[in-house]
């Protein structure tokens, strides 16, 4: 018995990309993202921010 739906799925999947192609295209797209991530914290936000800005400050001093 010929299952046309299954044959169609098989036919289309024959044109699917390899895993390497899938990964390569994704790698080329994601560098276009800004790289900025929003983080939310429930507690100790002041301490976390102080730590982040201390690290930023250190980096800027090194650059200067």
């Amino acid at each position: 018995m010929l299952d046309t739906e299954k044959a169609l799925r098989d036919a289309i999947s024959a044109y699917y990309p390899s895993t390497a192609v899938r990964a390569a295209v994704k790698r080329r797209i994601l560098p276009h993202s800004s790289g900025i991530q929003l983080v939310s914290v429930h507690q100790n936000s002041a301490a976390i921010m102080r730590k982040i800005f201390r690290r930023c400050d250190k980096l800027m001093r090194n650059i200067a």
Binding site: I12, S13, Y15, Y16, P17, V21, R22, A24, V25, K26
Partner: peptide, 18 residues
């Protein structure tokens, strides 16, 4: 991604599909 790639691959071949 797979279905979009297959669509373009059937239209124009592998290089253009990428």
């Amino acid at each position: 991604f797979n279905d979009v790639y297959a669509y373009f691959c059937l239209c124009f071949g592998e290089q253009a599909a990428q």
